[in-house]
C-alpha cells in the first residue's frame, strides 16, 4: 500500500525550446516511508511530484504506484499544494468533504471522520469560515485535512510550508510529524529547506538542476517520534553540515 517506483523516468517539456526537466530518475519508496526531495528551485522536484500525482505524463521510463502504472490523478495520492488551492467559494467544511462527496461516499460514512480531521488540524471552530478568512497556515491545515479525508495511500506535498512565516512553518512541521506518526502514510515531500527535510524524513533525495537528477540519497536515522526540538540536536546539526556540503558539490559540478 502506497509504494512508489520510478525506473529511469525522464520528462521533457516541449515548446519553443525543449526543456529536459527530469533525467533518468530512479527512486523506490516503501510503504509508510517519508521521503524528502531537496533541491534548488528549477531542479524538477515539483515536476517529479506532478508525474506521480498524474498531473503530467512521463516522457520515458516506468512510473508505478502500488505496482500499477500512473496514468491520471486519483484520491489514492493526496496532493497538498504550496498555496493550498482550496476552493474559495466553499467554506472549510465543504472543502474538507469535497473529496468523499465527489466520490459518492455516503454522508454518514465521511461526516464523523471529517469532523475528527478538522479537530486534528485544530480548525473545528472554523468549519463555516471561507478560505479567504483564514491565515496561510490555517489554509494549509485545511489542505491537509481535505486530503486526509480521502484516506489516501500516499501524501504528495509540494513545498506545502514554503509560503509560511518561520514560526507558522515550525508549528505546521510539528503537526505533520504528529499526523504522520499516527497514520503512517507514505509521504513524498518536496522542499528547498534543508532543516525541514532532515526534521521530517526517513530519507532525503538531493536533486540538481538542468537536467533534474537525484545526485545523492541520504538516510536520516534520527530516532522517532521526532519533534521540532530535534532541530537543535547534535545529530541534526551533523546531518545539516553534511547535506550543505553535498549540495555545494552538486552546484560545483554543473
Amino acid at each position: 500500500m502506497g509504494t512508489i517506483t520510478f525506473e529511469n523516468v525522464s520528462k521533457t517539456f516541449s515548446g519553443q525550446s525543449e526543456v529536459r526537466a527530469l533525467d533518468g530518475i530512479n527512486l523506490a519508496i516503501g510503504e509508510g516511508e517519508f521521503v524528502a526531495l531537496l533541491g534548488p528551485s528549477g531542479c524538477g522536484k515539483s515536476t517529479l511530484l506532478n508525474l506521480l500525482a498524474g498531473f503530467e505524463k512521463t516522457t520515458e521510463g516506468i512510473l508505478l504506484f502500488d505496482g500499477k502504472t500512473v496514468t491520471r490523478p486519483g484520491p489514492d495520492r493526496g496532493v497538498v499544494f504550496q498555496e493550498a488551492a482550496l476552493f474559495p467559494w466553499l467554506n472549510v467544511w465543504q472543502n474538507v468533504i469535497f473529496g468523499p462527496q465527489v466520490q459518492g461516499v455516503a454522508r454518514a460514512d465521511y461526516e464523523s471522520r471529517a469532523r475528527n480531521l478538522l479537530k486534528l488540524v485544530g480548525l473545528e471552530s472554523f468549519a463555516d469560515a471561507l478560505p479567504v478568512q483564514l491565515s496561510g497556515g490555517m489554509r494549509q491545515r485545511v489542505g491537509i485535512a481535505r486530503v486526509l479525508a480521502m484516506s489516501p495511500k500516499a501524501l504528495l506535498m509540494d513545498e506545502p510550508f514554503g509560503a509560511l512565516d518561520a514560526q507558522t512553518r515550525l508549528s505546521m512541521q510539528q503537526l505533520l510529524l504528529d499526523v504522520w506518526q499516527s497514520l503512517g502514510t507514505t509521504v513524498l515531500f518536496v522542499t528547498h529547506d534543508i532543516d525541514e527535510a532532515i526534521l521530517l524524513s526517513d530519507r532525503i533525495c538531493v536533486m540538481s538542476a538542468r537536467p533534474g537528477r537525484i545526485i545523492r540519497t541520504i538516510p536520516i536515522t534520527m530516532p522517532r517520534p521526532r519533534s521540532i526540538a530535534s532541530l537543535t540536536s547534535a545529530e541534526f546539526v551533523a546531518y545539516k553540515a553534511r547535506i550543505m556540503s553535498d549540495m555545494k558539490v552538486g552546484a560545483a559540478s554543473h
Binding site: F55, P73, G74, F81, E83, A85, F87, Q103, M150
Partner: peptide, 10 residues
C-alpha cells in the same frame, strides 16, 4: 491548481 485539486480528489 484548483482543477488539479479536484482531479486529485477523484
Amino acid at each position: 491548481n484548483l482543477v488539479r485539486a479536484a482531479m486529485m480528489m477523484g
